[in-house]
């Protein structure tokens, strides 16, 4: 009986991930067909197990296994082992269905090695300065935000090479942070100034821009972690402007304790500082 519940749980979980589109927060969408087919495979196993159970011939099946000398039934001999097996199997179903996927939270990032005078010295406690990941959701109601998020994903997710120029900077970047799985392996072109925190590797940099979502009180710094094929610490200095092109990947970034999207750089060049270093969100 428990087995039916667990199998059904997995079926439902995979179905939910695909129906709500949350799957892109967890995995590379290139192989989403694998987890999509899981809905049917698991569904089939659930049905099969249900029929077996309804017929009540569980005993016979177990003898079956012994016939093949395959000792897996060994594993579930004692009550303790049974409890262990079923608890383990239930954990991901329960936490997966009921807990939301965590995403980069700008309040965490703030404390982790990013220092900008206009943010650090701002005494206005109501100001909302974001770092790295643009999050426009506080400025919209929930339904409108979700609708916009969906449209942006449709628009940028269908491009194979996404150019983060002034016009698209905010919305494309936000879309990438919201659904990194949809953008993996795509080309992204990004420009901004180089920024270094203490805890990144010598071949890594942050490429950032100052940006304004709504008004100057909530100006923030937005951009991405980029990784060069070689050590660039001595070549590219802090605050130098550059344009990078690379393929998008995600990585677990220890200082933030989060999975973040980053660019594996294939091409880069130094560029002059633009006239207006700020970018503005397009509405």
């Amino acid at each position: 009986m428990l087995r039916i519940i667990i199998l059904f749980g997995f079926t439902y979980f995979f179905m939910m991930l695909h129906a709500k589109g949350d799957i892109s927060k967890y995995i590379n969408m290139k192989y989403s067909y694998l987890s999509f087919s899981m809905i049917f495979l698991m569904g089939f196993l659930t049905l099969y197990q249900l029929i077996q159970w309804a017929r009540g011939d569980k005993r016979k099946d177990h003898n079956h296994d012994h016939d093949h000398g395959h000792d897996h039934s060994h594993d579930e001999d004692t009550i303790l082992k049974k409890v262990f097996t079923y608890t383990m199997m239930l954990i991901p179903i329960i936490t997966g269905i009921f807990l939301p996927a965590a995403t980069l939270d700008s309040t965490i990032v703030k404390a982790k090695g990013f220092h900008f005078s206009f943010i650090d010295n701002d005494t206005d406690q109501y100001a909302n300065h974001q770092i790295l990941r643009p999050d426009a959701s506080p400025y919209y109601d929930k339904i409108a935000y979700n609708q916009m998020d969906k449209n942006d994903l449709k628009k940028y997710g269908s491009e194979n090479r996404i150019v983060l120029d002034d016009k698209h900077y905010f919305r494309a970047l936000e879309s990438i942070y919201n659904h990194p799985g949809n953008f993996i392996d795509k080309k992204v072109v990004l420009k901004g100034f180089a920024y270094r925190t203490d805890d990144i590797e010598n071949n890594q940099l942050f490429v950032l821009r100052f940006g304004i979502i709504h008004c100057i009180a909530d100006a923030g710094v937005y951009g991405m972690l980029v990784e060069f094929p070689k050590d660039v610490k001595s070549q590219i200095h802090k605050d130098e402007w550059l344009q990078v092109e690379g393929t998008l990947e995600t990585t677990y970034y220890q200082p933030f304790k989060e999975n973040i999207p980053y660019l594996k750089v294939t091409k880069w060049e130094e560029i002059p500082k633009p006239k207006d270093p700020y970018v503005y969100r397009q509405y």
């Binding site: 967890y26 987890s35 996927a101 965590a102």
Partner: peptide, 19 residues
């Protein structure tokens, strides 16, 4: 937030490996 983070990594490993 930390536990949510851990759960996210945990679930993504499971989803990728289970198929």
């Amino acid at each position: 937030q930390t536990l949510l983070q851990m759960n996210t990594i945990f679930i993504s490993i499971i989803i990728e490996a289970l198929p």
